[in-house]
Computed example of a mutant assay.
Amino acid sequence: MPRPLPLTEHCADPLARAEHVCLGVSPFNSHFTVDRIADLARWAMSAFHGFHFFVPDGPSAFTLEALGYDPVRAAQKAQRQGNYTRNKIVRALEQVCSPDPHTLILDSAALEADSAYLGLLSEAHHRFATDPEFAEQCLGATGWVLDRRLPEGEHPTRDQLRSAVRYFLAELPMFVGTVAVAGVESSVFAYHQRVAFLERLYRGELSWRPLPGQGFVVLEQAVPERVE
Score class of each variant (00 low, 15 high):
residue 50 G to R: 12
residue 51 F to Y: 15
residue 52 H to M: 05
residue 53 F to L: 09
residue 54 F to T: 00
residue 54 F to Y: 15
residue 56 P to Y: 00
residue 58 G to C: 06
residue 60 S to V: 04
residue 60 S to H: 07
residue 61 A to L: 08
residue 61 A to M: 13
residue 61 A to R: 10
residue 63 T to M: 09
residue 63 T to S: 14
residue 64 L to D: 03
residue 66 A to C: 11
residue 71 P to D: 08
residue 74 A to E: 04
residue 74 A to K: 10
residue 74 A to Q: 06
residue 82 G to T: 14
residue 85 T to Q: 06
residue 86 R to D: 08
residue 87 N to V: 10
residue 88 K to H: 14
residue 93 L to W: 12
residue 100 D to T: 12
residue 103 T to G: 03
residue 104 L to S: 12
residue 105 I to W: 00
residue 105 I to A: 01
residue 106 L to N: 00
residue 107 D to L: 02
residue 109 A to F: 07
residue 112 E to Q: 12
residue 112 E to W: 05
residue 114 D to H: 15
residue 117 Y to H: 10
residue 118 L to D: 13
residue 121 L to I: 05
residue 122 S to L: 10
residue 124 A to S: 15
residue 124 A to L: 13
residue 125 H to A: 03
residue 125 H to G: 00
residue 126 H to R: 15
residue 129 A to W: 01
residue 129 A to G: 09
residue 132 P to N: 10
residue 133 E to Q: 08
residue 134 F to Q: 10
residue 136 E to P: 11
residue 136 E to K: 02
residue 137 Q to H: 15
residue 137 Q to F: 03
residue 137 Q to M: 09
residue 137 Q to V: 02
residue 139 L to M: 10
residue 140 G to V: 01
residue 140 G to N: 14
residue 142 T to L: 02
residue 143 G to T: 01
residue 145 V to G: 00
residue 145 V to W: 03
residue 147 D to I: 06
residue 147 D to G: 04
residue 150 L to Y: 04
residue 151 P to Q: 05
residue 151 P to G: 08
residue 153 G to F: 00
residue 157 T to M: 05
residue 158 R to H: 12
residue 158 R to T: 15
residue 159 D to T: 07
residue 159 D to H: 05
residue 161 L to W: 03
residue 162 R to H: 11
residue 162 R to A: 09
residue 165 V to L: 01
residue 165 V to C: 03
residue 167 Y to E: 04
residue 174 M to S: 01
residue 174 M to N: 10
residue 175 F to G: 03
residue 177 G to C: 08
residue 177 G to A: 12
residue 178 T to Y: 01
